[in-house]
Design a protein around this nucleic acid. Structure first.
Length: 432
RNA sequence: GGACAGGUGGCCGAGUGGUUUAAGGCAGCGGUCUUGAAAACCGCCGUGGGUGAAAGCUCACCGUGAGUUCGAAUCUCACCCUGUCCGCCA
């Protein structure tokens, strides 16, 4: 959510930012907002002088009545009665204008950071060369993960389709255990090495929480919803409950940065993804993910963005999985992000790098929607905090990457050394 | 799901239609006193908005929303949340 005051003070910067995002009618949009803002402020000035007079007169009426001066009281009451309609109408108009302005602001995406490359789509994303890691392994005729999993008899899409439909999967035996091992390994790394606090959050949330992180009102079609009025929503990522943890709060500067990590299932309707990644478990309605969220001061957020990306990459490094990092261009970034790094892992079966993590600095954008601020050391309330989130990592896709990168010619899969202790010492997953 | 009781500033807590400008206390900050500290005493101490160069003036906010009234923390209605008990339950 944007600050209308900031738009008022620098309309052109706002317009430039939205244009970089690809919004061609940014000028019209900005001028519309400013016109609404102006109308609202003019109304407030008018309305408040009426309210001030009413308050004064009402006080005088009280005093007159105490002095038993009924004539004086009557005269004042008559005067205020004349103001009443105008005030009530003005208050209704104020509510209406504020609501309209808020609704208009709620669907405008965040402004890209100054160092974000311009571009219309993922073709314009820019590699972060210094963050690249490892080389694709030389494998002969590598299989795709679902071929491996199905041959092991431990990955079942058919029965999942019978029970739940497309884009669901059953994992069994060692593969089910591997998912749990991956998650434990990730959580342990983030808590022990990077100081994140492990959290087990709700995965059903209210509309206000979805608004806070920016999924609502615009992206309702991507979400699963439960109930008609005052619904619950299934979280598409633990970013939602972790970030909204601080909603409507004023935090002390001393407690920042606040770092939280959670392992949760994630639910996505995948509307509009028809035909994409239909085989295998790359794109599911339900998948599990370890998420990282940081709440910081504005001064800290850029450094924290690098740090959160480090934490996510550390997992892939320990698993010895080749990957690269790209800075998303203005046209490829999510709604709430100011700057985003995507981490892409090498998948031999697909002969391609595929996204496994997305680390974003949302600046003050979500904090404004959530009404989360902080207090400095002197106790003075400052502006909104900054919020960041990153996948650390998508567990399903990590399992896919392990299957494809650690596959053996005989159809078995080696267990990466850092996971062996989580797998009861097992070094290999084979058909039973 | 049902019954009852509640929701007031950072915290506790008074306040059932009009000098409420939300009492009082705790915590915090500044000061007096003191060699220093404690105690005592004095002062300050919510958020957001409008207007203004500023000082200031002003509006809104007592769980949320709507309403009654000249005037609402206080009355009415709806909803949300918390606690206790009952029911159900991993």
């Amino acid at each position: 959510m944007h600050d209308i005051k900031a738009i008022r003070e620098d309309r052109d910067a706002f317009v430039r930012g939205l244009k970089r995002r690809g919004l061609s009618e940014a000028e019209t949009l900005a001028d519309g907002l400013l016109a609404q803002d102006k109308a609202l402020r003019e109304l407030l000035t008018r309305l408040q002088s009426g309210q001030a007079r009413r308050n004064d007169a009402s006080k005088l009426i009280g005093q007159a009545k105490q002095k038993k001066d009924e004539a004086q009281a009557k005269a004042l009451m008559d005067e205020v009665a004349g103001l009443k309609d105008a005030i009530q109408q003005g208050e209704a108009e104020q509510r209406d204008l504020e609501q309209k302005l808020r609704d208009a602001l709620a669907v405008i995406p965040n402004i890209p950071g100054a160092d974000v490359p311009d571009g219309a789509n993922e073709a314009a994303n820019v590699a972060v060369v210094s963050r690249a890691f490892g080389k694709p392994p030389g494998l002969n005729n590598p299989k795709q993960h679902f071929e491996i999993g199905e041959a092991l008899g431990q990955m079942d899409f058919e029965r999942a389709a019978k029970v739940s439909g497309a884009r669901f999967v059953y994992l069994k035996g060692d593969l089910a255990k591997l998912e749990r091992a991956i998650a434990s390994f990730m959580l342990d790394t983030h808590t022990q090495q990077f100081g994140y606090t492990e959290v087990s959050p709700p995965v059903l949330v209210k509309s206000t929480a979805m608004f806070g992180t920016g999924q609502l009102p615009k992206f309702q079609d991507d979400l699963f919803r439960i109930g008609d009025d005052d619904p619950f929503w299934l979280v598409p990522t633990a970013e939602v409950p972790l970030t909204n943890y601080v909603a409507d709060e004023i935090l002390g500067e001393a407690e920042l940065p606040l770092r939280m990590t959670a392992f949760t299932p994630c639910f996505r309707a995948e509307a509009g993804a028809a035909g994409k990644d239909t085989r295998g478990m790359i794109r599911m309605h339900q998948f599990s993910k370890v998420e990282l969220v940081s709440i910081t001061t504005p001064e800290q957020s850029q450094a924290e963005h690098e740090r959160i990306t480090d934490a996510a990459q550390e997992i892939l490094k320990k698993l010895d999985l080749a990957h690269r990092v790209v800075t998303l261009c203005t046209g490829d970034m999510g709604f709430s992000a100011e700057k985003t790094y995507d981490i892409e892992v090498w998948l031999p079966g697909q002969n391609a790098y595929r996204e496994i993590s997305s680390c974003s600095n949302c600046g003050a954008f979500q904090a404004r929607r959530m009404n989360t601020r902080y207090r400095n050391a002197e106790g003075k309330v400052q502006g909104p905090v900054h919020t960041l989130n990153g996948s650390g990592l998508a567990v399903g896709r990590t399992l896919v990457a392990i299957l494809e990168n650690y596959q053996e010619a005989d159809g078995s899969v080696a267990v990466p050394s850092v996971l062996q202790s989580y797998m009861g010492g097992k070094t290999k997953i084979a058909k039973v």
